[in-house]
Simulated scan of single mutants.
Amino acid sequence: MRNERVVAYLFVLPALGLFLVFRFFPLVAGSVYAFTDWNGIADARWIGLANFRELIFDPVFRDTMRNTAWVILSLPIWVGLPLLLAVFIHLGVPGAPFFRAAYFFPIVLSSIIIGTMFSIIMRFDGSLNQLFILLGLEPVDWLGDQRFALISVVSVAIWAHFGMNVLIFLSGLSAVPPEIIDAARVDGANLWQVIFRIIIPMLRPIVEFVAVITMITVVTSMFGLIYIMTGGGPGTATYMPEFLIWLMQGESNRLGYAAAMSIVLFAFVGCIGVVQIRMMRREWE
């Protein structure tokens, strides 16, 4: 028994080492540097809470968090659309094999490729506006107008992450007993009643999981699209926390200030995730 435990620990050791080196130690180091003035080269100078006080009055940081709040409000779209498509595919609607292949396509593309592709499509003289002109509509500056830039980037991000959520929901639907759905149909339930009164309640844990994971993705994984499509502009219209942290660290050489932003982002994501889980559980109960 003791030898088996030793072997088990040896198998876990590489993963634990990677976690400590690339996750735990950077988190601890970042927590320390958040209280310093450090440019990455000279010795770090301890300044206490000065970085966090600066964050409170930083207009760029406020704009970034406002953009983040708007994006989080779009979370029902990130979760609801993939859920409905997964249900339709599971129920075998016409064209299900096509949708099953189409939704998976964005997963195999990097954010750089997706951002470049949609930058060409959404530029002022791009194919999207050419379609608008053919339909007799006025062209829109999708990436250069503050009213549309964030919506455009978020729409592309939803498309890019759509397939993974569909895949997760399809995995959950495979555990739903088909006898229950058949019994509901025999009792006279229509399609929407089957979806909203039987299937979705049975997928409650999966919905909660996808909602939390998607929220984290929304806040922390849009850097590539923003960098390629808008560069954060126009102005600060498409700034997100991860992009602003990169600017402070990579271009302004303010690693201490960037570390303070990272700590705030970490706490923000954690709090939103906890609140989200509690609200969902209370709603389902």
Rank of each mutant, 00 (worst) to 15 (best):
Y9F: 10
M122I: 07
P59G: 07
F266N: 04
R147A: 12
M1G: 13
L150H: 04
F61H: 00
L81D: 05
I180G: 06
G256A: 10
V93K: 11
V71F: 05
L203D: 00
N67F: 02
D37I: 05
L85G: 01
S31N: 06
R254T: 04
I133P: 00
D43T: 13
T238A: 08
F118W: 15
N129E: 10
Y257D: 02
F104M: 14
L10M: 15
M164Y: 11
Q193L: 11
A175T: 12
R278H: 04
P234F: 07
N51W: 14
N129H: 14
R62A: 09
I272G: 00
L16A: 12
G126Q: 06
T64Y: 02
I180R: 12
F243M: 03
R53P: 02
V166A: 08
T68E: 01
W38Y: 11
S127A: 12
L16S: 04
G136Y: 08
I200P: 04
W284L: 13
E54K: 13
S262A: 10
G144V: 09
V153R: 08
I158R: 06
V210H: 00
G136D: 06
T217R: 07
L170W: 05
F124D: 09
F22I: 10
P97R: 10
A8T: 06
D141E: 14
L81M: 15
F169H: 03
H90N: 14
G30K: 07
F132V: 10
I56T: 08
I213D: 06
F52S: 03
P139C: 14
L85H: 05
Y103T: 03
L225H: 01
I121E: 02
S155P: 01
L244R: 12
E138F: 13
F61A: 06
L244Y: 15
P201E: 12
P106H: 00
L170F: 09
N51C: 13
F52L: 07
I113G: 03
S221W: 03
T214A: 10
V212I: 13
G256Q: 10
I112C: 05
G48N: 12
